[in-house]
Amino acid sequence: MIRLSKHELFEMATLLVVANTPHSLFKGLLSSSAVTRLRYEEHPNTLLSYFNQITARAERSEIVMGLAYGVLIGLLMNSRNADWRFQPDSTRLTWGPQIEQHAKASAPPTQILNISAIPAPQVSTSNQSTSTLILPRGMQGN
């Protein structure tokens, strides 16, 4: 069950109205408290079904659209959806494809890269000292 306050819904709608580009909308929503909660507290499956539900509505007010974009970002940047197993149909929103592109470009890498050990270079040493060791005064032999 997703619970967002009236203030959070209004904040998302305002960002939608004020944003001039998809990237600025993405950045603004990503830093909002609502999307932060959606990313870390909600399961991707819940977000996906919620996204499908709200984007299927005939009513498309700023509150609904702001929420839809917020849920889309919450899903794409969800801590439990790092491999994007839960893939929304972002084309349902005008700026959806661009938002998805930005989300995927800014998400942290999830692949583990195994770097094989690099063999240490062989260093040959000789017993013969090449430089004089200067000992501190107190340690010098008699």
Binding site: L15, V17, V18, A19, N20, S24, K27, G28
Partner: peptide
């Protein structure tokens, strides 16, 4: 012009923080 709002005459930084 501020998004879907109107045009404003404003100081350089006297505008919504998203900009």
């Amino acid at each position: 012009k501020w998004g879907n709002g109107g045009e404003f005459i404003h100081g350089l930084n006297d505008c919504p923080r998203i900009y």
